[in-house]
């Protein structure tokens, strides 16, 4: 347990170290589709440790995981603003803010709140996220001007293709799971089509109507 925590922290530090940080941030597509998801992933990996010490009032207040998911949506939206990406490149302090907020204010709440979300809520998040990702990618492909001052237009096109590809891959997976009834409980749960048959031990059952 403690060793896992140590490895996660080390990965976090490693991402911040100059060679890795520089190589991921020097390319717009790598910045958006590798570094940012990795930082969110670090928060996700931290969530089991936090869950064991999560105070009761937070479990109650994060009803159905809604406040947590609102945080996830807002924080990830923030780091998709071209100006925010540019500031992260030109100002190390802003980059440090990115390295703190993406794991702790996006990845961590995602890990904690996703389990509390009813299937309909999860499906809603996915159904919003996938087309939005595709639309942003399409926008990058179509934009005749550079949106980021520190990235070239060909990098912007690459990033657009990367986002469109990811959106298509997620959309196709979603489609296959819905219509071909892929028999994978974890995958179905992840995409919000099946209830994890293990209610939160702390939950008082007020959400039972939505859970089942």
């Amino acid at each position: 347990m403690r060793r896992h925590l140590f490895i996660i922290m080390a990965a976090w530090m490693l991402l911040w170290c100059w060679p890795l940080r520089y190589s991921l941030e020097s390319d717009m597509a790598l910045h958006m589709t590798v570094q940012i998801p990795l930082l969110i992933g670090i928060g996700l990996l931290l969530s089991p440790f936090v869950r064991s010490i999560e105070p009761r009032w937070l479990v109650d207040a994060d009803w159905l995981g809604i406040p947590g998911m609102v945080a996830v949506v807002l924080v990830t939206s923030f780091w998709m603003i071209p100006r925010a990406l540019d500031s992260a490149l030109s100002d190390p302090l802003t980059d440090a803010a990115k390295f703190v907020t993406l794991p702790l204010a996006a990845g961590l709440p995602l890990g904690l709140s996703w389990r509390r979300m009813p299937p309909l809520g999860r499906a809603f998040i996915w159904a919003n996220f996938i087309p939005k990702l595709g639309a942003i990618g399409g926008l990058y492909l179509a934009a005749p001007v550079r949106l980021c001052a520190y990235y070239r237009i060909d990098q912007q096109t690459e990033a657009g293709w990367a986002l469109v590809t990811i959106a298509a891959a997620l959309g196709i997976s979603w489609f296959i799971i819905v219509f071909f009834g892929l028999q994978s409980a974890p995958l179905k749960t992840w995409f919000g089509f099946q209830v994890l048959r293990r209610p939160e031990p702390e939950s008082r059952g007020y959400s039972s109507a939505l859970w089942r």
Binding site: D60, A61, D62, W63, I66, P67, V70, L74
Partner: peptide, 14 residues
């Protein structure tokens, strides 16, 4: 029933 502290937390986060 809505969880205790839900509204304040939601308002704060938003």
């Amino acid at each position: 029933m809505i969880g205790r502290g839900f509204i304040p937390l939601l308002v704060l986060v938003t």
